[in-house]
Structures are given as structure tokens and as C-alpha cells.
Design a protein around this nucleic acid. Structure first.
Lengths: 253, 253
DNA sequence: GTATGGTTCAAACAGTCGTTTGAACGATGA
DNA sequence: TCATCGTTCAAACGACTGTTTGAACCATAC
């Protein structure tokens, strides 16, 4: 009667779930949420159409769980590494580069691990943040808000000269550059055209971005972002709620 | 027989075209290309369903023309302002801020002009660059590649210390921060929560972003981007096309 | 052996998608 | 007045959407 729980889980359904996850992941990278139909997913996964509703309750559930499968480990690893570095700093507050490293290093580690993401992990990360579908946007902002808040605190401590409002904006800009670049609709071609691999005898498989490319990509991105975070403060015409006369130079002109 | 061309155009069809444009624009902002159906568009425009195919040849044509209506004037104004500044500099090469200003100022001008874009112009710009649909991506990259190339040259002249490859990447990062921020799914809430208007007696209409917000937004964004463009060069493990054994340390760590 | 419960399956559901059709409208020009 | 041309319209097209159904499968538990 009651489940004796010998191994009631991994009979066969786990395989199907996994195959559907992988198919949904690949198709989501290419077509986004709205552009991916359940028939596309199940056909690619070699599963029956009804399997998605059986296992995930519907399309929304499938994509939510698919994203959580990849992004939960990422955010856990990020928080773990951030805590580790904080402990290693014994009281001294972390630098801007260290906080950024606590974001980047786990992402690269997952991209190197085929079992927890693999080659396309960073692209998935970027696409998830860029997709316009309300289903994904609400899910992501609800699920990962605490992590973002923690890192916001860390950056605030690392950049004491930046007011909180300004910092919130700059982190938003940073997220934009990050997501857009990782989503990489055109970034692939940029990589291929501008950044030939050190071993020119092995040209990349025309559309395949490998982990080494990702490493160089993030190595390029990091100085850009850090300089942006540390940039001199803008001169806003009317400083809200702080009308003290303090202005430096023109913002955009 | 042959058209005497008195005023054969602006009889009534022009109104319908315009109403369909406006409806498609508003819906595209909210739902993206895949998420916007022609029935939604025509219903909002008060037009017949077949009108879209009659006037634009189909959904693809509608969205292409809708984007061109807003983006063509933007790119023209950008090129014009860039040329103007170059002429004003008489030989001396433009600075980084001036090139960026040639991108930002026309965008803000169009956002201030209801006839050529209006309040939602910048959001449209951002959404267009972020949307995953191949139809839009191919259209945009084909139509506005020359402008982008021109500005890339201008930035290259303004930043002689940055190698071309590195610059191409940094412009890509810049475009990402720009597009993601302007698309502004969450930016609205950021503005409302962090950046109260200087006159607190007039709270914004809960979701309406006005031109003044946009100005401050770009004023915040500009220093961030300029600092990123000028950032110190990254240390890449293996400098491409120079396979000499010389690697220093991990990319981001 | 017979139940049981998790899983797969083909088939169909009602609805929406973009597009097409052919008739009607209404102002223009002969 | 009649023909013409650009435009609008209701209706339908076939294909595709996400979801549901109820029967079949099959290893396990009794």
C-alpha cells in the first residue's frame, strides 16, 4: 500500500524527464519561450506529447523546472563562493573584482561540467534573462531575488563611493551587458570573426561555442564591467531628495 | 487609365496604416514579436483582420515597416549629428563622449517628439534589439549595419588605445547594456522605486515612464559605458595568432 | 496468480495562428 | 451614368497551439 520506496523514482520516467529537459533547453536557446512548441520538444525528445503535461503539468511548469535545474546550482554555488571569500577576508570587506569573481567563476565551472549545464549553459543563462515571456520573467525574479539582493549588498560594500540608487542602476546595466552578451545571438559570429582560436588548425564547428571561448569572453567582460561600476558619478539635472548643490560636469552632452 | 495622381494616396488607407502601426507598436512593447498576433493588432487598431495583409503583405512586413518607421529617422539623425560634430572639430578626432552623445541625443530628441516616437520610443528601440525572433534580427542587422559600422569607426578613432577586437567586444557589451536597459521590463519599477521625480506631488501614472525619466536614465548610463569602453585591457590567457607559450593566470579569478 | 500504481500512448479536444477569398463599398475620372 | 480602382469587410482556409482523455503497458507488491 504505502510506498515502500525501494527505488520508486528512477524506473523509467526519470529518463523521459531528462530527455524532455534537454530538448526543451536546446529549443529554448534557439527559439525562445513563445517560439518553442510542446510538439517540437516532445518530438526532439522522442517522447509522447502528453508526457510534458504528465511530468510537469504543462508548458509553463516544464520551462520553470528546466530553468531551475540549471540556475539553482548556479545561484547556490555563487552564494557559497561569496561566503567563502568573505570568510577568507576575515573582516576586511571584499573588493569589486572578488564579488564579480564570485559571480563568474561558478558560471564558468558549470559551463565546463556537461552534467550540470555544459557548453550551452551560459547561453541559457543569458536567454533566460532576455526572454520577454511573463512566465519566465516572473519566475526568475521571484526565485532568484534573494541572491541578487545578497550580491547587491556585497557590491555596495565593495563600492562605498557609489550611492545606493546609482549602484542599483549600474548593477542593472551590468546585468544587461551580461545577459545580452551571453544570450549571444550575434556573439558567436563575433567570436568566430574576431577571436580565432589559438590553434588555427581546428576551426570551431561553425556555430559551436566552446568553454574556452566563454572564458575569454568573460575575461573581456570583467574589466569592462568593473570600470563601469567604478565610473565617476553622473551629473543629474535635479538630484532627487538631495537638492544640495553639488554638480560636476555634463552627463551626456 | 493611367493614374492622374491627384492625391491618390491619403484617401483613407493612410489612416488605417497608421492605426495599425500604432497598435502593433504598443503590443510589440508588451508581448514581443511572437507574442503579438495579428488579431490583437487589428482589434486594437479597429481595423479588419485582412487589412494587415493588404497593406503590409503579412505579419513580417508589418513589423519590419513598423520598426523602420521609428528607427530610420533615428539612424539618419545619428549619422547627421556625428557628421556635424566631426565638421565642428575640423580635423581633430572626436572624443568618446562626443561619439556617444551622437548616439544618445537623437534618441532622446525622438523620445520627446510624439510624432516620431514619443514616450515609448526608447522602449521600442530596446525591445527591437532584444527580441529573439529571426525575422526582426535579420531585418535590423541588415538595415542598420552601415550605421553601426560608422560608429564603430568613430569609437575606434576616439579610443586609439583599444585594439579593434577588444573594441568590437566592448561595443557589443555596450549595446547589451543599452538594449536591456531601454527594453526595461523591470527598469520601470527601478525608476519608480529608486528615483522619485523631483516634484513628488505628481507621482508617475504607475507604469508610465516619461521623457524626463529617460533623460536621467541615459545620464546615468553614459558614465558607466564610457568608463567601460576606456577600461584597462584584459589579460587573456592565450593571445590569438600568437601561440607563443605565455600564459599568466586564469581569466577571471 | 491477480491487483496496483506509475508511465506511455494514439487520438481527439476546443481554440488560435497567419493567410486567403470574393463580394461589397465609395470616391474618382470619363 | 457607368466603369474603375483602392480599400474594407465577413467568412472561411488549413495548420498549428496547449491540454485532456481513456485505454494500454509493465514492473512491482501482494
Amino acid at each position: 500500500m504505502l510506498k515502500a520506496t525501494p527505488v520508486p523514482e528512477a524506473r523509467n520516467g526519470a529518463d523521459t524527464r531528462e530527455r524532455i529537459f534537454d530538448a526543451a533547453e536546446a529549443l529554448f536557446l534557439e527559439h525562445g519561450f513563445d517560439g518553442t512548441s510542446m510538439r517540437m520538444v516532445t518530438a526532439r525528445a522522442g517522447a509522447n506529447l502528453a508526457a510534458v503535461n504528465y511530468h510537469f503539468g504543462g508548458k509553463d511548469g516544464l520551462f520553470r523546472e528546466m530553468l531551475a535545474r540549471r540556475l539553482d546550482p548556479l545561484h547556490e554555488a555563487r552564494l557559497a563562493l561569496l561566503g567563502e571569500r568573505r570568510r577568507g577576508a576575515r573582516g576586511r570587506s571584499l573588493g569589486c573584482e572578488e564579488v564579480l569573481a564570485a559571480m563568474f567563476i561558478p558560471a564558468l565551472a558549470l559551463a565546463r561540467d556537461p552534467a550540470r549545464g555544459g557548453r550551452d549553459f551560459l547561453r541559457l543563462l543569458g536567454r533566460a534573462y532576455v526572454d520577454p515571456s511573463p512566465v519566465l520573467r516572473e519566475f526568475l525574479s521571484a526565485r532568484y531575488a534573494p541572491t541578487i539582493e545578497t550580491f547587491k549588498e556585497a557590491f555596495a560594500a565593495a563600492l562605498p563611493g557609489i550611492p545606493r540608487r546609482e549602484l542599483a542602476w549600474r548593477l542593472h546595466f551590468m546585468l544587461g551587458a551580461l545577459a545580452y552578451t551571453l544570450a549571444g545571438a550575434d556573439a558567436w559570429r563575433l567570436i568566430a570573426a574576431l577571436d580565432p582560436p589559438p590553434c588555427p588548425s581546428a576551426p570551431p564547428a561553425a556555430g559551436a561555442r566552446d568553454t574556452e571561448d566563454d572564458e575569454r569572453l568573460l575575461a573581456r567582460l570583467a574589466p569592462f564591467l568593473i570600470a563601469g561600476l567604478r565610473a565617476p558619478l553622473p551629473d543629474l539635472g535635479a538630484p532627487a531628495a538631495a537638492p544640495a548643490a553639488q554638480r560636476t560636469r555634463a552627463g551626456t552632452a
